[in-house]
Design a protein around this nucleic acid. Structure first.
Length: 211
DNA sequence: CGCAGGATCCGCT
DNA sequence: GCGGATCCTGCGA
């Protein structure tokens, strides 16, 4: 399968709009072991300065957040415990925003994904979480700052989405008012969406009430 | 230089 | 559902 990176202009749109537009697109990574890709089925927008859940809240500018202050269309990777997570940098220069890729539906290189994640895994477990999908595709922290519009790591056209679900983001329990912002987007009825049950959301709402 | 705190995952209950 | 694994990063002393 020959895949062509998307046009750069795709990244030049407001972050919430980009987060929705990424649904259905392909995320592709080529390594020495081969190519693996998946359709994006779940994203979260992080809106920078005014978003308490964002690493760039209040324009916090460090070595880690630096890439978000540059132009859109580059990879922001970082390590969470033992896992690597990948974001698409969004927003104009000086506006540090990003879209977290939370889940994929495997497309090509599925054998490679099993090899990386473990043969005993169910197909759904290959890519139904932000740390799982990076492992399946071979995306690592060294991909930090890489362009997402050319090989070996890029976004490509995928398929049309029928309907989009919208709701609060996952795992940001200490972000006060930002806990409620409906900035998570997913493909309705898609089994690869990371958190089907809303227990973690309920938990975050409870924490909100208690604080 | 030490330490606290996660945009997670997995295994066990 | 819950807790532990185990890794940076960022901040303050």
């Amino acid at each position: 399968m020959v895949l062509e990176p998307i046009n750069y202009s795709f990244f030049q749109q407001p972050t919430l709009s980009l987060a929705r537009a990424l649904l259905g697109k392909l995320l592709v990574k080529e390594t020495e072991l081969g190519m693996a890709s998946g359709w994006i089925v779940e994203t979260e927008a992080y809106l920078g300065p005014e978003d308490r859940a964002a690493h760039s809240f209040e324009n916090r500018r460090t070595k880690r957040t630096e890439i978000m202050f540059g132009p859109p269309g580059y990879a922001y990777t970082y390590v969470m415990h033992t896992h690597c997570l990948v974001n698409v940098v969004s927003g104009e220069i000086g506006c540090p925003q990003a879209v977290l890729i939370r889940a994929l539906e495997p497309c090509c290189g599925i054998d490679l994904m099993y090899q990386r994640r473990g043969k005993e895994k169910k197909e759904r477990e290959l890519t139904n979480g932000p740390g799982k999908l990076t492992k399946s595709l071979g995306i690592v922290k060294e991909d930090y700052g890489r362009a997402l519009f050319k090989y070996p790591l890029f976004i490509a056209e995928g398929k049309e989405i029928e309907s989009v679900g919208v709701g609060p983001r996952i795992g940001i329990t200490n972000s006060r008012e930002a806990v409620h912002y409906p900035w998570r987007f997913w493909v309705q009825e898609n089994p690869f969406v990371s958190s089907k049950n809303s227990s973690r959301i309920r938990k975050s709402l409870v924490n909100q009430l208690l604080s």
